[in-house]
Design a protein around this nucleic acid. Structure first.
Lengths: 227, 227, 227, 227
DNA sequence: GATGAATGAGGGTTCATTCAT
DNA sequence: TATGAATGAACCCTCATTCAT
């Protein structure tokens, strides 16, 4: 299977390049990243890199939009028969896990934002629409008295910011927590904390936290519901 | 006073350079920013710029640490006789106003984080100590039953992330809010929202918000206190 | 006949390459042409191209000398029993038709000249000898009073320049004539014009031009052989 | 006068660059010319060259249009009270002398034509208009019986081609003439020859050549009028 | 103080060519 | 045969910085 092997090797290299690119772009942004460094990180020479990619810009666009696409699924908030607490909990968990698992992809997006979103801008309207839909969903919850009245759009952006920060400022977080890395327990503790903070902040503290408490008994915030 | 005038001109130029540098570094990070662009933005030629600065790295370090220094005051949380709600409210307000007023300084810090904090790292321990002190303060509140039991360190970092996001992702925020800029009313609404969310999340919703409402009546979450 | 078919395919590809090479070399010269573009134009990949050719230089030499060879026949001026007018008319017609039919081959030669004839130089002596022979022929005509005394060598080079220009500056010619292309009638009109101009310039035009003058500016000087 | 000296040095360098660029572009066309070679020829390093120019394309455009501008004056055919023979003689002389004096500028134009006139194209209409005006002038001469009826536009293009060829194919011309360079006598002989050929071709042989002979006695084609 | 000039390194990209397969 | 991959040189251009003036 020489053809299959060659193809496999090519695919592997494509992945190496993608990963190298993500690391460099996440670290230094589009302008600050150098194809030199990307090539070196992927174990290629600079002209060799250009055998696989067309241009730095194309490569950047590709990895950036790949991240956006991956996020697309996360945003797919479905409230079919679920309680507000359940929906928000799931969203927070998914978003945090993405930050833990793919911190660089999150960072590439933040770098793009810092630069003024030159590439992402055209797609921004799509995400605004989705966010608006989610906000409408929340507003309905509020109108039906299921939730404390908060600004839905701000809430969504706050959740986004908090979860994102565990990727963007990971080094700082680890340093402040005095940990070399986040183990599975740390991750769960953070997820629980953020979920609790947000849900309580939305006046959803009691039930869902109690539900979570069944799984993780070492949690006290249930008291917060009865001041 | 020609000497005074000359000095004044020099100082003004220093400020121009500083501002230009902040804009470029905030946008493109240390690596991606070019002295060319900084010089142009400051209305200087490249050699002229080097008359005022020693190197790109020095300039970067300067503006970055300047930002850190400005933040230092914000972090100065003083709980002398103040309630938790009051302390947190003040902190959230100060931090958000800084994000609104100096978004670029916030961004420069985030860019530094994305790059792995090469310059900031040596100073990080200082901020960890301060944050730890603040966390201890919060823990004492919790121990005295003044607050819902949340992870104090995570809470501080969450507040930091949420407030920071209004600077880092300002474009996105504005786009989602369908506003060209944030007016004074928008800012107050956001401050109220974030304060309410966090304080409620900490089980501090009722009293303090009511207290704050006395000063700033344009606040809605007070309703949440009267179920 | 798979062998025959394969051979045929190979020959066809050789022709495609040759044509693609001529187009690129004619447009951009030896240095400015890229094997990439030649390969693309011939419908081949770059390594595939190198299967058929040894090097860019070889390919260039080949197509250039091919052009020279084709010209060799044009230069074969045979005055066996023909009048000066007849010989010159035939030469002008042949050369112009070559320019019309193969403008790119003419251009490739001009590009080579512009570059200082690095490849053609070794063969130049051959053409000088031929041209000298033709000049001698003309001189004899002059000596025998068959023609106005003009510098034979300059005359030959002038004819060459004029006829060549319809290939080299074709675009300009078409643009000035406000035509998208030269039809058969245009070609004949140009041939008649040039023939008339040169022959009259050589004192060979009297009778026919006088005749033509009554109807049209440029007319077949073939009749000029009669008086 | 250090300022004056510096300026002088700069201007000199600008001229060196211009000349070097003309040589390279004339030889290899836009694509084939390298800034490396231009810089070397001008005695500069490559980045140093970019201190004086913005880009290769700009430099090319500059020298090309400079040539066009210089030609603009040549084209300024003024028939105020002059005979056709005089007007054409002057034009031929001016154009030939330009070819002798600035062969590279002529070549750069031919190279541009070979490449499809990507830069010159926008300006072509201007030259077509001028040529059309000159053609109209010639047509009037013909209508008034001052000249043999030839196609005026073709005639102009032929003159252009012949005169141009002494620049474009200079090496070939010298080689065929067995001369290392064209002396003043050679130049005059060529001017006389071309003038005689074209004027005779236009049926303007007798009178004007005689007139020119008064100014430049070293001319033989006068004999052509006698037989 | 401030300007024009210079420099060596490196930016992204394409070149002609070769080598496995 | 013909393709994917590799290579080293060269492409045009910008970088941060320095040095005369």
């Amino acid at each position: 299977m020489s053809a299959g092997k060659a193809r496999e090797a090519r695919d592997r290299k494509q992945i190496d390049i993608r990963r190298a690119a993500i690391e460099e772009f996440a670290r230094h942004g589009y302008r600050g990243a150098s194809t030199q460094a990307i090539a070196a990180r992927a174990g290629l020479s600079k002209p060799q890199l250009h055998y696989y990619i067309d241009s730095k810009e194309d490569l950047y666009r590709e990895v950036l939009l790949e991240t956006m696409h991956a996020w697309g699924d996360l945003f797919a908030v479905d409230d079919a028969g679920l309680s507000p607490a359940q929906v928000l909990s799931d969203y927070i968990r998914r978003k945090l896990e993405f930050s833990f698992d793919h911190p660089l992809m999150s960072r590439i997006f933040t770098a793009e934002m810092l630069a003024g979103a030159p590439v992402f801008k055209p797609y921004m309207a799509v995400y605004r629409r989705r966010t608006a839909a989610a906000a409408t969903m929340i507003r309905r919850w509020i109108d039906r008295g299921l939730m404390r009245p908060v600004d839905p759009l701000q809430l969504l952006m706050n959740i986004w910011a908090v979860t994102q920060s565990y990727a963007d400022h990971r080094d700082q977080v680890l340093f402040y927590m005095r940990k070399p890395a986040l183990g599975i327990a740390d991750r769960e503790r953070i997820i629980a904390h953020v979920t609790s903070l947000i849900l309580t902040g939305c006046g959803l503290g009691a039930a869902p936290v109690a539900a979570a408490a069944r799984r993780r008994p070492a949690r006290r915030p249930a008291k917060s519901a009865s001041p």
